[in-house]
Simulated assay, not measured.
Amino acid sequence: MESFDSFWAVYSNLVLTLGTNSLLALSIYLTLSCGMLAMANAAFMGIGAYAASLLTMNAGAPFPLALAGGMAAPAVVALLMGGPTLRLSGVYLAMATLAFGEVVRIVVLNTESWTGGALGLNGIPPLTQWWHVALALAVAVAVLALMRRSKVGRAFEAIKLDETAAGLMGIDVKAHKMLAFVAGAMLAGLAGALNAHLTFFIGPNEYGFDRGVEILTMTILGGIHGLMGPISGAVILTLLPELLRGLADFRNVVNGLILVVIVLFLPRGLWDPARLRTLLGGRRA
């Protein structure tokens, strides 16, 4: 028990970061599962983090209400920007959502009285506990698992495969895209709210282009063919820098090489149900 206490004292933040990063990976998995390459998740994470932090710091709101606010704020923004933005597709949608992320960063920088500007917000109350993250991740996985098996999940898959054919079959493509976009924004906002009350400090540079690429990399690395894919990608990408810490200056080089090898030899990601069925079938034979 004493050894666990010492382990938790050192690595608690890392363990909880695994959970919040998993939520972020699932947030972009939602949009990818509907055939949309949207790169606004880092911005939605930032909106959720700032909204929840301002509620607890300035309004004295209880933590559950702050988390709800951290989900509601990016959802409202996603609804407002989704109309004109989701008409785009492919790289054009990615560029538009990246530009939105830059707009959010500039707004944060220029609202110093609320957000602290470039200095960020410091002294956020440390309210996030391990069970908050565990419960949020468990509920997210359960809801997404039910969604995958539902009519909505089948509609997402049809839109991803062929948007025109899905529309001809009677699927409301625009409504389903909006649903995926808003739900992904809510998950990213929840991750941001939990992370803000874990790290005690947030700043605008934490939610920029680099963060957006990192979230996308987690999901692509793990694979988008099952819910365990984004989670496994988030775990690998979060743990690798820590596991390679002993390599000092060569850590980033080795980290990059490992990711390249995984992408080259596992193009469908780490979690590939078809490959797992083949392996299990071969062992049984």
Rank of each mutant, 00 (worst) to 15 (best):
residue 146 L to V: 11
residue 108 V to G: 06
residue 171 I to H: 03
residue 195 N to C: 00
residue 114 W to N: 00
residue 172 D to Y: 04
residue 156 F to V: 05
residue 127 L to H: 07
residue 168 L to M: 14
residue 156 F to T: 03
residue 98 L to G: 04
residue 195 N to Q: 15
residue 102 E to K: 06
residue 144 L to D: 04
residue 161 L to G: 12
residue 136 A to E: 02
residue 189 G to I: 06
residue 116 G to K: 08
residue 124 I to K: 05
residue 112 E to M: 07
residue 172 D to W: 03
residue 192 G to S: 13
residue 142 A to S: 12
residue 137 L to H: 02
residue 96 A to N: 06
residue 188 A to W: 06
residue 154 R to T: 09
residue 170 G to H: 11
residue 111 T to Q: 14
residue 178 M to T: 06
residue 143 V to K: 04
residue 99 A to Y: 09
residue 160 K to C: 10
residue 103 V to P: 08
residue 102 E to N: 04
residue 175 A to H: 06
residue 136 A to D: 04
residue 151 K to T: 14
residue 176 H to D: 04
residue 106 I to D: 14
residue 119 L to I: 09
residue 134 A to I: 10
residue 168 L to W: 07
residue 160 K to A: 15
residue 190 L to C: 10
residue 160 K to Y: 08
residue 157 E to I: 11
residue 155 A to L: 02
residue 113 S to G: 15
residue 157 E to H: 09
residue 187 L to C: 03
residue 170 G to R: 11
residue 109 L to C: 00
residue 119 L to V: 11
residue 122 N to V: 13
residue 104 V to S: 05
residue 168 L to R: 13
residue 164 T to I: 15
residue 161 L to Y: 07
residue 177 K to E: 01
residue 157 E to W: 04
residue 182 V to K: 00
residue 108 V to E: 07
residue 194 L to R: 06
residue 179 L to P: 03
residue 160 K to H: 14
residue 188 A to P: 09
residue 128 T to V: 05
residue 180 A to I: 03
residue 131 W to A: 10
residue 129 Q to M: 10
residue 101 G to Y: 02
residue 186 M to F: 10
residue 161 L to C: 08
residue 100 F to W: 00
residue 176 H to V: 13
residue 167 G to C: 06
residue 109 L to H: 05
residue 173 V to M: 02
residue 96 A to T: 11
residue 163 E to A: 13
residue 191 A to Y: 01
residue 115 T to M: 07
residue 138 A to N: 02
residue 115 T to L: 05
residue 195 N to R: 14
residue 108 V to Q: 10
residue 133 V to I: 10
residue 151 K to V: 14
residue 180 A to L: 06
residue 148 R to W: 03
residue 102 E to F: 07
residue 188 A to T: 06
residue 173 V to F: 00
residue 176 H to I: 12
residue 102 E to G: 01
residue 168 L to V: 13
residue 114 W to G: 00
residue 135 L to P: 01
